[in-house]
Computed example of a mutant assay.
Amino acid sequence: MSLNAQQWLQQIRQLPLPEKVRIMNVCGGHERSITQAGLRSALPDNIELIPGPGCPVCVCPEEDVYEAIQIALNEEVILVAFGDMLRVPVNVRKSEVRSLEQAKARGADIRPVASPTDVVRIARDNPDKDVVFFAAGFETTTAPVAAMLAEGVPDNLLLLLSGRLTWPAVAMLLASDEPGFDCLVAPGHVATVMGAKEWHFVVEQHQLPAAVAGFNNESLLAAFYSSLRQLLEDKPFLDNCYPELVTEEGNAQAKKHLYEVMQVTDANWRGIGTIPASGFGLTRKYTAHDARLKYPGYQDEARKRAGEMPPGCDCARVVLGKIYPTECKLYGAACTPRNPIGPCMVSDEGACRIWWSNVRKPAA
């Protein structure tokens, strides 16, 4: 018989926990659920929940956003992107266009979309123009984009791809001298597509407790309880606390499309730097739909710098779980959802935006 949230909390409170236990939740959706439900305040004080690198908007390289802006401003194209990407700022002088939203205000044809289906429809409705799809996201977003291409798209649909894999960022943290967490809660949506098996390395290579969680309170608390029990008993294993949707192997059809259309590449993460084998690029079969080949003059190598966040912005350390959003000097002062300085305040999967939206204002 499954437990409700209150019963899981009671189980957790009865554990003989050490003075401090740090659990990293990778997914931005997890962080949103945790914060909206007030789970941090409901759990014992010695349990620290750390938001991790689970916001694709936050880690999208600055040079990719800049490239999208320049293509939209300088070419006769329709540029489409998922809504959050329109407000992500780049580092330019105040007199220059610093977001796709500002480029749209300057006359560029830029349209927010909710799904690849929207993109295909726009391309079919505008056969006389190239439609450039600025596709940023993790596996859960990139897999439908791959399926879109595999199923066939109009010749005028081009992809400006900025896809990332989730697990290599966690692997990078675990390989560092100070990972900053004792247990891991792995992302349910990513595991639904890619399979739980992607996360076995956490246990097998690093001997850390791990659990895959869904997005309701019961699944999250079950994952917290499991990882804490593993830690106390010194018996780490990967526990699937989201069996309704997550299997060991994942979605076979989605993965088939993903690896037919995409190839894994080294990739830059904004403010973090290059992480090996953490990005997606188009395979040779689909290069006719590569916007970077059709419009090659807008890639700026000089913008590919680790630490590429605005001055004073601590988004990178927030993404890596090194600090909480409220510890950034700009949080709530210069940086708010109305006027985001860094990408973590833009997306509803960014920890800064989530905390701000749930009454975690800066201390007076």
Rank of each mutant, 00 (worst) to 15 (best):
N74Q: 12
V88I: 11
G54A: 05
P18M: 07
E327S: 14
T265R: 15
E327F: 09
A210E: 04
D177I: 09
A211H: 08
D300N: 15
E248C: 01
G163K: 10
E19A: 14
R229I: 05
R98C: 03
E301G: 05
T117H: 02
P56E: 09
S278L: 01
A171N: 13
V113N: 11
G307W: 14
L39K: 08
L174W: 12
A223V: 05
G250L: 05
T287L: 15
G350Y: 06
P112C: 00
L157D: 03
I110N: 01
G214E: 10
I272Y: 04
Y298S: 04
G137V: 03
G195R: 05
I69M: 10
R121E: 14
C328T: 12
L17I: 06
K329A: 15
P112H: 00
G297C: 02
A103P: 01
Y66F: 11
L17M: 07
Y324R: 15
G195P: 02
G312V: 12
M85S: 01
T287R: 15
G163L: 04
S227F: 06
G250R: 06
D125P: 05
P362C: 10
V120D: 02
V120N: 06
N126Q: 06
V153D: 06
R270L: 06
S99C: 03
P179L: 13
W199I: 06
E48L: 02
E308Y: 09
L231W: 10
L161R: 11
L160R: 07
G297S: 08
P168R: 13
G307Y: 15
A306W: 08
S347W: 06
R164S: 13
I71P: 00
C58N: 05
R353S: 13
S162Q: 10
S33L: 05
P209G: 07
G188V: 09
F224C: 14
V261H: 09
V21Q: 14
P296R: 09
K94W: 01
A123K: 04
L86F: 04
A351M: 04
G152A: 09
R303F: 11
L9N: 09
F224L: 13
R93W: 00
I69A: 13
C60F: 03
T326H: 12
V145T: 08
L165W: 07
W356N: 07
G163M: 08
L184V: 15
R32F: 08
Q70I: 05
L221C: 05
L245E: 13
P127G: 10
W355I: 02
L330P: 04
G195N: 04
I50D: 11
E139T: 09
P154H: 07
L220S: 03
V318H: 01
N217G: 00
E101V: 00
I341P: 03
P61Q: 03
P61V: 01
D290A: 14
N339W: 02
P18L: 07
D155W: 00
D64C: 06
S99T: 15
D239G: 00
V57Q: 09
I34R: 07
R111S: 10
G250V: 04
S115Y: 07
A211K: 10
G312H: 08
L160D: 12
A306F: 09
E96F: 04
A211S: 13
C55D: 12
E76T: 04
K94I: 02
E19P: 00
P16S: 05
N46H: 11
V261I: 11
E301H: 12
L245P: 01
C60I: 08
A72S: 14
